[in-house]
């Protein structure tokens, strides 16, 4: 199991467009990736917009990304995505 943390860079948090972009990127990878808010440790499927929204993650929150079948590069790519300001793209 690989894990990595990332601090949410989007001003509005993982919500709306950032949540959608994240879910789409995870779907593209074809691997199982889960995320949780640090402190809650309630991991959800990161390929589902609904699941991501349910975390209620706001700007500056730290999330943990984990996967049992993704490569470290894939996890790092997802972490970079979470840390960027997806709303500004």
């Amino acid at each position: 199991m690989l894990m990595k943390t990332a601090t949410v860079g989007s001003r509005i948090g993982l919500h709306a467009r950032p949540a959608t972009l994240l879910a789409e990127r995870v779907q593209d990878k074809g691997v199982e990736i889960e995320i949780a808010k640090v402190g809650d440790d309630d991991f959800v499927d990161a390929s589902s917009i609904l699941m991501i929204l349910s975390l209620g993650v706001t700007h500056g929150d730290t999330v943990t990304i984990r996967s049992s079948d993704a490569t470290i590069e894939q996890i790092e790519e997802i972490a970079t995505l979470i840390e960027s300001d997806l709303d500004a793209e």
Partner: peptide, 13 residues
Amino acid sequence: HMKIIASLARRLI
């Protein structure tokens, strides 16, 4: 706003 959406999403799952 965020709280409402998160609570709703948690049920919609």
